[in-house]
Design a protein around this nucleic acid. Sequence first.
DNA 1: AAGTTAAGAAACAATTTTTATCTTTTACCT
DNA 2: AGGTAAAAGATAAAAATTGTTTCTTAACTT
Lengths: 134, 134
Amino acid sequence: MNYEQLLRERDLKVTPQRLGILTLMHQSGHISIEDLYVKISRQFSSISLATLYKNVHAMIETALVKEVKIPNMKSKYEIIKAPHAHLFCTQCGSFEDVTVPMEEIEAMLPHGIQFKPTESSLVYSGICEACQNK
Amino acid sequence: MNYEQLLRERDLKVTPQRLGILTLMHQSGHISIEDLYVKISRQFSSISLATLYKNVHAMIETALVKEVKIPNMKSKYEIIKAPHAHLFCTQCGSFEDVTVPMEEIEAMLPHGIQFKPTESSLVYSGICEACQNK
DNA sequence: AAGTTAAGAAACAATTTTTATCTTTTACCT
DNA sequence: AGGTAAAAGATAAAAATTGTTTCTTAACTT
């Protein structure tokens, strides 16, 4: 993936820190601020948490990154990709993407309701396969 | 609704503060901590934010109250009721319940995926009816 | 390539949000 | 009514997030 271009398209300067943040987000799929800070600090030992927050928010405001809020968990951040849902295992804490037809989900709103959804957030909480086999 | 009983069933002492919290939650449907604090303070001028947090968490742990996480918004808290989804208007910030068959939503997970959902969180973000007519 | 400038990084500091600790009060069970 | 454990109140401390100022650097211009 070409992060430089993604940043430039949004008039965000391409800095090593930002490239590092995006690379880590992509590698892990979705990552919490704390984890991101631990990992990015290994590359940029002097980076501050404030810089991290500011960058992540700049990327959220320009629709490059998305915050995923999870029941009973800290938020995770991911690079925006095709609409999808998430699976959260309440037993082991694992968290992963799952492909679900979000348009269909949006079509399930009761008829007669005039709400026009532009985007939906769906998190399934439950027991993952690995934990079922324990 | 009989809040006293709901509290007793969970071995939570029935205190005026708790009854007040539950009444406010019920009245508003779902409420943020800040709003709750402003309102509960009118009844119990000496209540501390710490007490409020402690109570709300005690109620969450005993499955009496649920935290609803909303993209780009502070969490709201509601008394647990039948499974449902939420509508969040990105224009005016209005937030309301909507009845959606959550079992069907859970049945939409791809076949072959072994995840067993116990509960799902679904928030539709978009434009509410009122804002469409502006 | 060097100079300019405006955005970003770093270094704090200050808020805001949430949790912990300790003392006093109160609900609830004989 | 009295005893006890839990909850409220009062801080204070810890976490999380945001703001400010100065220094540095990316990227544009010549």
